[in-house]
Nucleic acid binder design. Structure first.
Length: 198
DNA sequence: GAAAAGATTACCT
DNA sequence: GGTAATCTTTTCC
């Protein structure tokens, strides 16, 4: 048995432990919650980096705060591709990454925890992308098949999840669609403005 | 064509 | 806690 698990762990197949299409083809809120504790990895020319996701936000159908609210445009076209597709957009000076759940809906990846604390600061959607090296060119990447970007299942139960209002949105700001690992030091806004978690 | 509005962050008081 | 930076996308005339 030890040899068997060792074989699995050493498997060279990139899909050996990767979140598949079915994981993302679920209600967006379920995907946002289930991503907490999962690993997002990116392979760049120099190295491979990964973070354990600790904070996400759901952007759902008929959601006035969603970029897809008014239908497909040049910017948001990736939001209408297959579940597991990356939607990367630019805001001010930084880029932020989402992963598509169901058509026209997505989960904003807001913060992660680095493998080593001194590695950098992936807390915040812009910092997360900068930390991992995600660029605008990664918009439209299929994380189920890409050799550069993918998700790995969480290895252990994530612990208590906090629920609160989304950050930085000016419409539907009351909706509690932000999920985070309670008490995790890498969550970008430990205290959601206004009301309470859970 | 012009203007406004950001799913942010860093740095100011 | 407030605001400037900075630039693309979207919207409006």
């Amino acid at each position: 048995m030890a040899s068997r698990s060792a074989t699995v762990a050493r498997s060279s197949s990139p899909n050996a432990r990767r979140l598949g299409r079915a994981f993302f083809d679920r209600p967006t809120v379920a995907v946002a919650r289930a991503l907490l504790g999962a690993e997002l990895w990116v392979v760049s020319a120099r190295e491979a980096r990964g973070v354990r996701l600790v904070e996400t936000e759901a952007y759902v159908a008929r959601d006035p705060a969603s970029h897809a609210f008014r239908g497909p445009t040049a910017r948001n076209r990736s939001m209408f591709l297959a579940p597991g597709t990356l939607y990367v957009y630019r805001i001010h000076q930084v880029v932020c990454a989402n992963v598509v759940s169901r058509r026209g809906e997505a989960v904003l990846l807001r913060a992660g925890a680095p493998r080593a604390p001194l590695e950098g600061n992936p807390s915040g959607p812009g910092r997360l992308c900068r930390f991992l090296g995600i660029e605008l060119a990664d918009d439209g990447t299929d994380t189920i098949t890409s050799g550069r970007i993918g998700f790995r299942p969480r290895s252990r139960p994530p612990g208590p999840v906090s629920l609160g209002p989304r950050v930085g949105v000016s419409r539907a700001e009351h909706r509690r669609l932000r999920f985070s690992l309670a008490g995790d030091p890498w969550v970008s806004r430990p205290r959601p403005p206004g009301r309470d978690s859970r």
